[in-house]
Amino acid sequence: MTAETRETKGQAALREQLKRNLSDAIVEMEVEEAERIAKEITAQGLFQMNLLETSVAAGMAVASRLYEEGEYFIPELLSCADAAEAATEIFRPYMLGEKPAPKGCVVIGSVEGDTHDIGKNIVALVIEAGGYEVHDLGRDVPASVFADAVEAHHPDAVALASLMTTSMGHMADVVQELTRRGTRSSCKIIIGGKPVSTSFAKKIGADYYAPGAGEAVRLLDDICSRRS
């Protein structure tokens, strides 16, 4: 065994360790610690693109699960997202030119009438860290803007969020607008948010309901693997 491969093994072990530490720091809401570990990874020349998925997204997936289990609440989730973003910021210069082709493309937004975007932002972050190209249209987004984005980006999926019973009806407007413009069959429509459900998705002609960020990524992986 040559010295070179031993060194590579040592580096790989260190990378594994730092990867776990970064994931833990995100789950533990330690923003400065996440930033510090990310800096150590880049300073040691250990950065690899897959860290975004195996460390950053993995940490956020654990945080989302803790939320679904009632262990974490929204303020905790927001702090985890801050830590994930701090690490991603450090990695960003190293991602240039090295970025592998995204697994797929997603257009996401909160539908018209809904100014809530916490859940949507967290889902967008987890999807992006999960290896997808994400176009976040923001909150209170009219159906025509979703349809424009579908024409511009040709996404694999459109993800619609609504937190209110008084605005969830406007998810149907997006489905209808895509149908009207002839782009409905070009992408899958995933809906999420507190008042909606699988039966509501079916009723308005959407394809899927995702109860959380982790489930959204699993659905996307499924959609994109079937496509290829």
Binding site: E76, S79, D117, I118
Partner: peptide
């Protein structure tokens, strides 16, 4: 706003 409020509540 909800996000700044909940972050401030926590920190």
């Amino acid at each position: 706003g909800i996000t700044p409020f909940l972050k401030a509540m926590f920190k």
